[in-house]
Nucleic acid binder design. Structure first.
Lengths: 226, 226
DNA sequence: GCGGTCCCATTGTGATCACAGAATTTGCAT
DNA sequence: ATGCAAATTCTGTGATCACAATGGGACCGC
């Protein structure tokens, strides 16, 4: 099944330097240490990654276009902050798009594919038991995109990837602050629906997963701050 | 009301050269002569726009990230072709996102705003009468985004802009080939719903407008080709 | 001790050059 | 005339340099 779940765009092998920088930055934004508000510099990243500033410029420009990074008025590049408004929009967009992707993927998922996804879910449970926030996020990402990728709907997948990139750093900060205790795993219903080939059930399960997972961090994080 | 409907992103004034190039390319992709399949070159655009290749590189990179342009395996940059699959995804994404934007905008639309939108719709009718395909497209774009912009939901607006950029060149080619006769104006229902402050009615009207407008060109264009 | 001002380091931006790969054209041989 | 091969042009990519503007910090005056 899909090995390269990230970077669905422009199926190219992507052997250019700026492509590699793009992937590494994307990985760090989503799973690494780039928290909301963190400022990055072109030359700094270039030196850190061992390349000239040029590929970094292109990668950062691309990430800004995907709203994974933001450029403030003075030209400085930062990881965007989350606001209640933006969070609600993310929640809506996910609920509007992801169940459809899952439904489209259903007919293309082989029983073997489904069991691979089930294994990922086991890993998620282990991560939750161990309080491993990053492991949970990586697993959750893999769980969803292994499914969505099978939909073979690049256009919708691109929209959803952009949405995930926008709330990723916030989610990471949230789990870092409030921990993973209290998080439940709502993926079982999705797995059962997939095994039953129940499209309506899968849509509902994905929708429930989004609502509950996002509600969890939304309640915990956004009540205090504004 | 919103003068700058295009380029919602990163509210900056955008006085940099690559920002200007980006806006001009975007304008041409959507309303100008860039048809699907059209190839562009960095140096060619640079000379044509009277700038160095540098700002063009950044603008093109950004447009590729938004999927308004595509890079083929050999590195050449082209305006992407439309496929039936992609068209269906565009249709779904529009129907999933745009009614929500319209609904969110409703409470912020003043009666004066609504009448401005109504005037735009009059212009659309004139364009349709004259068979002015570009006028129709400009008017249709303004009609929708004058409303959506009032929703003050940048994240969702960005998704919708990306979607429009992806079907814009195809729609232009479609109207150029099949003309605008047969196009009906389904905006009246939306205007009446707005005047009534009828959120459900507005959602339904926008959804109907999308379904019928897109169905019109989808039926005409995508049956023959593949 | 504290506030303001000047200076320098750092930032993103744009231009120019070098380079490798691809595509097109040219030229030759059949 | 036609098919193939070589060469030349053209492509995007990356590096380096120059520059204006912004930000931070040091220094001085009160």
């Amino acid at each position: 099944m899909a090995e390269r779940v990230l970077n669905s765009q422009a199926g190219g092998i992507g052997s250019t330097a700026h492509e590699a920088v793009y992937r590494r930055l994307r990985e760090r934004i989503f799973f690494g240490g780039f928290l909301p508000g963190h400022a990055v510099t072109l030359r700094g990243l270039a030196e850190e990654l061992g390349v000239s500033p040029m590929p970094v410029r292109e990668a950062v420009r691309r990430l800004i276009a995907e709203r994974a990074l933001a450029m403030q008025g003075n030209g400085r590049v930062v990881v965007p902050l989350m606001t209640r408004d933006k969070f609600e929009q993310v929640l809506f967009a996910r609920a509007a798009l992801e169940p459809e992707l899952a439904a489209r993927a259903l007919s293309r998922l082989s029983p073997a594919d489904i069991e691979v996804v089930a294994q990922v879910d086991d890993d998620i449970d282990s991560a939750l038991l161990n309080g491993d926030a990053e492991g949970y996020m990586r697993g959750n990402f893999r769980f969803h995109f292994m499914i969505y990728r099978q939909a073979e709907a690049d256009m919708l997948l691109g929209l959803v990837e952009s949405v995930w990139l926008q709330f990723g750093p916030f989610m990471r900060m949230a789990y870092g602050r409030i921990g993973t205790q209290g998080l439940e795993d709502h993926h079982q219903a999705a797995l059962e629906a997939m095994r039953r080939r129940d499209e309506a059930g899968l849509r509902a399960a994905i929708r429930a997963d989004i609502g509950q997972g996002m509600g969890f961090i939304g309640d915990a994080m956004l009540s205090p701050l504004q």
